[in-house]
Design a protein around this nucleic acid. Structure first.
Length: 816
DNA sequence: CTAGAGCGCTTG
DNA sequence: AAGCGCTCTAGA
């Protein structure tokens, strides 16, 4: 009897690979275990076992595996099913899913760089001979490649040794020198141990405290300690109304102790599961969600910003935990979760784990193992896209927060999955429930609720009846006519900013473009400088005095004269965030004005610094792109200004109006949280545009109706599924010919689909690659599976044509 | 004719 | 992904 296994390798290859194993290995191996396999002439890959069998392949002789890496499967069978679903639905290789699903520390590729952890004190007697040999080599040369390790140990099978050193943290994998953001330290207060006993306590209050203020401080501490497990020094002093000196004095007397914790890494010794005081409305909403879960696996919660969504989430998580289930909390971008992590940790203590690309590989592996072993430490996982690939054992609830966010759809590389949709499939495998939450649901989800496929609940009042912000439209055409503008700002906006500053409140200004201005134009010949590698106009950056391409990052010095006619009359057109920032600084020179966009958040932790600065009110006004709209809660913002609503509406995309509506409503939601109604000023040349009217009237349903009519009419989601094929090649004629061939081939050979194009996208060349796009529409009522297979067949036959072989095709299912 | 570069095919 | 072999080209 001969023994074989089928494995996936972490490469973008459509097929699985068969290796031969001996009987003992065959008995030991289970699907989901890692094995090291030789691949090609010299390479070694970490493969995942998919299945075992006895069928000898007829056309080739399988190679032997090198080693078994795991003693237990690290990928569950449910995960393997899920991987298969992703690969099939999103039309990509299983290896692509594998690469996306496992933290890279699990992959021992032959090119993997191993680096030495020189700070660690190692008990050398605990090492085996091979481990010691390698340890010495690392002392000499702190970074080694895999093949060098093979040479040092003079054998091929070195995975076990490497794995052991990894476990002992003597070496790291692929450490691209992860410098961690040094989070702000927050000071916390606790009573000295002596006073934790009741007798001592009474003694303290009755005898030791000399002044009223000291007593007030200690009493306030007690009051707070009944509500929370950790007490912030700043909060204590504020609430007790005493100065720091009083506290310092008591600290010297060893009555209080101070300790510091990183803001987003607060560890709680025990969770504080105090019941939250729900408003009647919140209670009703929770009830409603739970009722809907009786009949529906997915419920959409349409809740306005500031309605207390998080408390509702917490209650649902609590219920799930009572059934001992795991909970996955999905967020669009992990950078924005600090507040959420804090709040969840305050209720659930150490049961909350964050799966964060910002943390090191080792920390990611740690969370992975906690989830795999279903330990208490990772019962609730907060994470972005990639966390749907964690090895859940008994998932009970998935929350998808800000479900409408487009960042949930992975653009590149494959698998190009939509996190929300994949999460629903994942939940189904576990018979788990899914809650989608948003203040501006995606049309797809709202339509599913409307069709009763999803349950639906709304919460349209803000917490404690704080009013929704007042929205003011400024007609820029009118304002200019009446000379009520100062450059890019209308007088109304300037007045409102002045008033907010006067009241010590903060301002957010939104402009959906980076740079100083998106167009540089020659006044005498109309020439506009373009990127040399992309078919796109260059954006002007004033401070750096250069022109930059937003697609490939190419920059060139600001020309002093027109490249075409040598005229010196160059002018800038259009408005970017840099210009808004500068203009605002000119009007308010004494205010601290910051900018948040891709350019200012590029540095390692620039984003966090900006957020911290704004939260601590060091920044008076922040100018930014849509980054500003992404779920940041600041409690001192009274005014939000949208400088030009029109460029959002003029976007050539069928989702443009939906997105514009969502963006404006989300921006508006940043205004006025506590005690005060916020104000939103929208500047536009089209005040009567339907979408803008829908925003001012807070008319989601109106927007929904109008857009659904358009979508039905023009055959777009949710009535049709979209698949976008993108063909790329440096030769313009070649891509064009190839895409024409493909489009007509599909029109002929695939029945029941609509093939649009090939079209040239508005930017038809990026990084010297010409692009053609084919859009495929599948009727929603037809089996997508069969059609996808047929489409794949067409693509495969394109690849068999010699002259088209070098054309690269990427497939995006459910294109966003 | 040769050396070297560059492309693309294969990987079990 | 990357080694390897095939093809093409530059230079003598």
């Amino acid at each position: 009897m001969e023994y074989f296994i089928d494995v996936v390798v972490p490469l973008s290859i459509a097929t699985t690979f068969t290796y031969s194993v001996n009987q003992a290995e065959f008995i030991f191996l289970q699907p989901g275990m890692r094995v090291a396999v030789p691949f090609g002439k010299k390479k070694v890959y970490t493969a995942i076992v998919l299945s075992k069998h006895n069928q000898k392949p007829s056309v080739y002789t399988p190679k032997d595996i090198l080693t078994i890496i795991d003693e237990q499967p690290i990928v569950t069978t449910k995960q393997l099913d899920f991987w298969q679903w992703i690969a099939q639905y999103y039309m990509c290789a299983l290896g692509d899913v594998y690469k996306a699903a496992l933290p890279s520390a699990f992959l021992l590729e032959s090119e993997t760089i191993l680096s030495f952890n020189s700070t660690l004190v190692v008990d050398l007697s605990s090492l085996t001979d091979d481990e010691f040999l390698l340890y010495q080599a690392f002392e000499q040369q702190p970074i080694l490649r895999f093949d060098e390790v093979q040479k040092i140990l003079n054998k091929k099978q070195v995975f076990n040794v490497i794995d052991e050193l990894l476990k002992k943290e003597i070496i790291f994998l692929n450490q691209h020198i992860h410098e961690k953001y040094k989070p702000k330290l927050v000071k916390y207060v606790t009573l000295h141990d002596t006073y934790k006993e009741e007798n001592e306590l009474i003694n303290l209050l009755d005898h030791e405290l000399k002044t009223e203020k000291q007593r007030a401080l200690v009493l306030k501490y007690f009051q707070l300690s009944t509500q929370k497990s950790t007490i912030e020094l700043k909060e204590l002093l504020e609430k007790a109304g005493v100065s720091k000196a009083i506290y310092t004095n008591l600290e010297k007397k060893q009555i209080f102790e101070t300790y510091s914790l990183a803001e987003d890494r607060v560890q709680f010794s025990d969770a504080f599961l105090n019941d939250i005081q729900f408003t009647e409305l919140q209670n009703k909403t929770i009830q409603s969600i739970q009722n809907q879960f009786q009949q529906h696996d997915v419920v959409l919660l349409n809740a306005v910003t500031g309605s207390g969504k998080t408390e509702i989430y917490i209650e649902l998580i609590k219920n799930a935990l009572q059934n001992n289930s795991q909970v996955l909390f999905l967020v669009p971008e992990i950078g924005l979760t600090t507040q959420l992590v804090q709040r969840l940790t305050a209720y659930f203590g150490n049961k909350v784990a964050v799966f964060n690309s910002k943390y090191s590989e080792n920390e990611r592996v740690e969370v992975y193992h906690h989830v795999l072993n279903a330990t208490e430490k990772a019962q609730i996982v907060i994470g972005s896209r990639s966390s749907i690939f964690l090895p859940f054992k008994n998932l009970g609830l998935i929350i998808v927060d800000e479900e409408h966010e487009t960042t949930y759809k992975q653009v590149d590389p494959a698998p190009r999955f939509h996190t929300r949709d994949a999460a629903i499939v994942l939940a189904k495998m576990f018979h788990a429930k899914v809650l989608l939450g948003s203040a501006t649901p995606s049309l797809e989800s709202y339509y599913n609720a409307y069709q009763q496929k999803f349950g639906y609940t709304e919460l349209l009042q803000r917490f404690k009846n704080v009013q929704l912000p007042q929205i003011v439209l400024v007609d820029l055409k009118e304002a200019r006519r009446k000379k009520e503008v100062n450059g890019i700002f209308s007088m109304k906006l300037i007045e409102a900013i002045t008033e907010a500053f006067y009241n010590g409140e903060q301002v957010l200004l939104f402009q959906n473009r980076r740079g100083f201005s998106p167009v540089l134009e020659c006044l005498s010949c109309g020439h506009v400088p373009y990127c040399t590698m992309c078919d796109v106009g260059l954006t002007y950056y004033k401070r750096q005095n250069y022109l930059k391409c937003h697609y490939c990052g190419y920059t060139m010095a600001m020309p002093s004269k027109c490249h075409s006619c040598h005229s010196h009359d160059l002018t800038t057109k259009g408005l970017g965030t840099e210009q808004v920032e500068e203009a605002l600084k000119n009007i308010f020179p004494n205010k601290n004005i910051a900018r948040m966009d891709q350019d200012t958040t590029r540095g390692k932790f620039a984003f966090e610094r900006l957020i911290d600065g704004f939260k601590n009110r060091e920044i008076d006004a922040m100018v930014g792109t849509q980054m500003l709209a992404k779920g940041l809660d600041f409690d001192n913002v009274s005014l939000v200004g949208i400088l030009n609503a029109d460029n959002m509406l003029n976007f050539p995309d069928f989702r443009a109006y939906e997105r514009a509506y969502q963006l404006m409503v989300q921006m508006a939601g940043r205004a006025g949280r506590k005690n005060k109604q916020g104000k939103v000023i929208i500047q536009t040349y089209n005040p009567y545009h339907n979408t803008i009217q829908q925003v001012t009237q807070n008319d989601y349903k109106g927007m929904f109706k109008e857009q659904m009519y358009e979508r039905l009419n023009f055959k777009y989601p949710p009535f049709y599924r979209l698949i976008r094929l993108q063909l790329k090649h440096p030769d313009y004629e070649k891509v064009k010919e190839a895409s024409q061939w493909l489009a007509s081939n599909m029109k002929q050979s695939v029945q029941g689909i609509l093939v649009l194009g090939p079209q040239e996208p508005s930017i038809n060349r990026i990084r010297n690659q010409y692009i053609q796009v084919i859009l495929i529409k599948l009727p929603i009522n037809k089996s997508a599976n069969a059609l996808k297979k047929a489409i794949q067949k067409s693509i495969n036959s394109l690849e068999t044509i010699a002259k088209f072989k070098s054309v690269k095709t990427t497939i995006s299912v459910d294109f966003y």
